[in-house]
């Protein structure tokens, strides 16, 4: 069984401390505990959802907001750059907003 760490009760993701394969059982260490089934092959150190996260939902780790999803993420699925965005340092969005402000 592979292992993943949960840092805080509020968290909806956990970090794998073993590389895992789709279908592997994953033991959750930390607050809440429990077990999930991996829905994809996931590398060492990467995160999985441990609660369902809706599109546009907040991703929580260390009991804090670490970003926003751009697609829904099911339990045991990989949560990473393909489905989680940062809210900070988004010069790309800033540029878009500035351009829209100039037009209006």
């Amino acid at each position: 069984m592979v292992r993943a760490l949960v840092m805080d009760r509020e968290d909806n993701v956990a970090t794998l401390i073993d590389a895992g394969k789709a279908g592997d059982r994953c033991h959750l260490k930390g607050p809440g505990g429990g077990e999930v089934i991996l829905r994809a092959d996931i590398p060492y150190g990467h995160k999985i959802a441990i609660k369902p996260i809706a599109e546009g939902g907040t991703v929580m780790k260390h009991g804090q907001d670490i970003g926003v999803t751009n697609a829904s993420i099911g339990v045991g699925e990989h949560a990473h750059v393909h489905n989680v965005e940062s809210r900070r340092g988004r010069g790309d969005k800033h540029k878009l907003q500035s351009a829209q402000a100039r037009k209006s």
């Binding site: 907001d65 970003g67 750059v81």
Partner: peptide
């Protein structure tokens, strides 16, 4: 977007998803 510079590609490979 600062992602790609911070976190940089090898941070992302190591599982870090966002600057937060």
């Amino acid at each position: 977007d600062i992602r790609g510079t911070n976190p940089v590609a090898d941070n992302i490979r190591g599982g870090l998803t966002t600057i937060e």
